[in-house]
Amino acid sequence: MLEEDKIRQLKENLSRAIREKDAKKANKLFVKNCVLFLMAPPLMEKFDEGLEGLNNLENWFLTFENGIGLETKELEITNNSDIAFLSSLEHLTGKRTDGSETDIWFRETLGLQKIKGEWKVTHQHQSFPMHMDGTDKAATNLEP
Rank of each mutant, 00 (worst) to 15 (best):
S87C: 14
D82K: 13
A84M: 09
T140R: 13
E76D: 13
M132D: 14
Q126N: 00
E74M: 08
A26T: 12
I77M: 12
L54E: 04
L29V: 05
L62W: 01
R16P: 04
G50K: 09
K11L: 15
N33M: 00
R16C: 13
D136M: 14
E118R: 07
T122L: 03
E20R: 06
K116I: 00
K137M: 09
N66L: 01
S81V: 06
R8M: 05
S87M: 13
T109D: 08
F106R: 08
T93M: 06
T72D: 15
V121R: 00
D98M: 03
E52V: 10
N56K: 15
G69M: 05
Q9G: 00
S88H: 10
T109A: 04
G69D: 06
L92M: 12
L62Y: 01
M39C: 00
N27H: 12
S100N: 15
D5A: 04
L43I: 09
T135L: 00
L62D: 11
A139R: 15
K6D: 04
E101V: 05
L54H: 09
P41K: 11
T97C: 03
E49F: 05
S127I: 09
N66G: 11
S81L: 07
A138Q: 11
E52Y: 10
F106G: 05
G117P: 11
I77C: 11
E108W: 00
G67R: 07
L38K: 13
N80I: 09
P144L: 14
V31K: 02
N79S: 15
L70F: 06
K25T: 13
D48L: 08
D48K: 03
F128L: 04
V31L: 06
R19Q: 09
F128R: 05
R19S: 04
I68F: 00
L54Q: 14
L92N: 09
D48A: 12
I7F: 00
I115S: 04
S81T: 12
D5M: 01
M130C: 13
E12S: 00
A138I: 02
P42S: 02
K24F: 14
L43E: 15
N80T: 13
E65L: 03
S81N: 07
L62F: 09
K28R: 06
E108Q: 10
N56F: 10
L14Q: 10
A139W: 15
T72C: 12
N141C: 00
K21D: 03
E71M: 01
P144H: 13
E108L: 07
F85W: 15
M39N: 12
E90C: 10
T93P: 00
T140Y: 08
S15L: 05
E108T: 11
K32Q: 11
D103R: 07
K25V: 01
G111Y: 03
N13H: 02
K95H: 07
E118D: 11
A17R: 01
L92Q: 08
T97I: 03
N13A: 12
N141P: 04
N27Q: 12
K6V: 01
S100E: 09
V121S: 11
S15M: 06
A139S: 15
E74K: 09
G69V: 03
K11H: 13
